[in-house]
Amino acid sequence: MDREVLIAAIKEIAAPYTEDKTALDTINEDTDFIKDLKINSANLVDIVLDLEEKFGIEIDNDSMAKMLDVKSTVEVIEAKLAAHDRK
């Protein structure tokens, strides 16, 4: 899946959890969920659960550990989707 498509999906999922709509509008690979989007850490798990539902993947704890920014999140989704395709 194209990175742009994945970032757009992450943007849509992160939207309800951020109050910083300006930062959301300029979301890119370098965007940090907590520092830039000011998302509460208790809501990061919602983003992980929403991504699991949207992409039909299972995100393990080691992968979740990295999901503090858009770039790492894209990489986790790509890896999980690739693993899924191989099955």
């Binding site: 959890y17 208790a42 919602d46």
Partner: peptide
Amino acid sequence: VDLRKAALESNWQRKGYLTKI
């Protein structure tokens, strides 16, 4: 944690929520 805000922002009874944290 602001309990009023947490009640609005987080649905802790959501499936999978507690087991992940």
